[in-house]
Simulated assay, not measured.
Amino acid sequence: MNDVARADLAGRIYARVYQASGRGDMHALLRRAITESGGRVVWASDHKRAPFYFGVQTDRGESLGLLIYPIRLTRVVTKGRPTDEHHAQVKFGADSTWKSEVHPVAFDVAGVDTTLFLGINAKEDKLVGLDPTLWDPMPLGVSFYAYERDFDQMGADGWHVWEVDTRRGHRHSARTPEGFECRVGFTPNRLLDFARFERRATDLGLDAALRVNLAAQFRESSTASKMAGGIHPLEKQFGLSAPKILDLIAERRMLTTAVKGGVAEAHLEQLLELDPAVSSVDRRTDDRGADFDVRLASGRTFVVECKNVSPTVLADGTVQVETQRTRNSKDDPTGRLYSFDAFDVVAACMFSVTGVWEFKYARTNQLKPHAKFPGFLATKQAVDSRWTDTIDELP
């Protein structure tokens, strides 16, 4: 295969295009998959050039640009290898260029087009999505694998996510610090759901663990549609687009404060669900109650309240978190205060100070009491040495 020249324009990075042969069946499968997953091909590149590019209009009114690196996935029984193994080898360009040249994976810096790195078994209608950022630059000649047992778990949803070990081998270092990467197996009718998943994962720069968590949430088509940008019920209820609703929130301080609380809770829930020391996280629904019931793998249980720290740091560097309710009860001076038995743990979201969705944890019984009202927490607490980095470190 001979390389086709690449051109750069206005600071944007264009894909290195390779002349290819024998990939027509994969190109045809992708065209059909776009249709089966609710889209219409507006424009498609030639199947004799890789990566493939498809301009897609969806039945939701979305316009998607898909830059797809197609890697042939085949199931051939090989002596000494698992009988259910599907094998793929990353091969683009002339063999002579594999070591002498760098072969980058192209990404749209403007965020308009989405890059997909796919293993494709065109004979069996099976696809495997890899994290394209981990295969950039492409280690040409390197193989990856999927197994029939992985595809069996796709079930009626046509979707399955799993982790693949990426520890250092004899040829290459590990691709992730976690020692594993996320793989998603899916059927053709879920292709556009996978593209939406990949667009979100890439835009957010998710690591391997968070990719696995997000991909698991995309398993059901109905959930994927809701998460991937379909018309949200609030857009229908208010008669406004999502960007307009977000503008209204940004313009009104009280709305922004309320939403930041909910966002912090969502990040905390996700973080706890990914923590191997945590066995279960259950969200509470009472607005005046605590936020989560958390059970650790050790068997300990905590009722957890999530709070945002103040963006204003004291002159001595102290970070503070406000431990009182945002709403008051009429004719009750303690209406906004929390009693010491309202919850076991405060999780302080540090984003307002650090710009990172990270948390510090403290036992309620170690916090400062209110000066006037015995049995209640002081309204402001210093985030100091009493606070731990993880919930399982609490005494």
Rank of each mutant, 00 (worst) to 15 (best):
D165A: 03
T166H: 10
R167Y: 03
G169S: 15
G169W: 05
R171Y: 11
R171P: 01
R171Q: 14
H172K: 13
T176M: 08
P177T: 04
E178M: 15
F180P: 03
F180D: 01
E181R: 02
E181H: 06
C182M: 13
C182S: 11
V184I: 12
V184D: 00
F186G: 01
F186S: 02
P188W: 01
R190V: 02
R190S: 02
L192M: 06
D193N: 07
F194Q: 00
F194T: 00
F194W: 07
A195V: 04
F197R: 00
F197A: 01
F197W: 04
F197V: 00
E198K: 05
R200D: 01
A201P: 04
A201I: 01
T202N: 09
L204I: 06
L204W: 02
L204R: 11
G205V: 06
G205E: 06
G205K: 06
L206V: 08
D207I: 08
A208T: 00
A209S: 15
L210W: 10
R211Q: 10
R211V: 05
V212H: 00
N213K: 15
L214W: 04
A215P: 01
A216W: 02
E220V: 08
E220R: 15
S221N: 11
S221V: 12
S222Q: 13
T223N: 10
T223R: 12
T223P: 04
A224D: 04
A224M: 04
A224E: 02
S225T: 13
K226C: 13
K226I: 11
K226D: 09
G229Y: 03
G229C: 04
H232Y: 08
H232R: 14
P233F: 09
P233H: 08
L234H: 06
E235A: 15
E235I: 12
Q237S: 12
F238A: 15
F238H: 11
L240Y: 08
L240C: 08
L240R: 14
A242V: 11
A242G: 14
P243Q: 02
P243V: 04
P243I: 02
K244N: 07
L246G: 11
L246C: 13
L248P: 07
L248F: 09
I249C: 02
A250N: 10
R253H: 12
M254Y: 09
M254E: 13
M254D: 14
L255S: 12
L255D: 08
T256K: 14
T257I: 15
A258D: 13
A258Y: 08
V259G: 03
V259T: 10
V259I: 14
K260P: 03
K260H: 13
G261H: 01
G262L: 14
G262I: 10
G262C: 12
G262D: 11
G262N: 11
V263D: 04
A264K: 03
A264N: 02
H267C: 07
H267D: 00
H267V: 03
Q270S: 15
L272F: 06
L272I: 09
E273A: 15
L274R: 14
D275N: 11
V278P: 01
S280W: 08
S280C: 10
S280A: 14
V281W: 03
D282N: 10
R283F: 06
R284M: 11
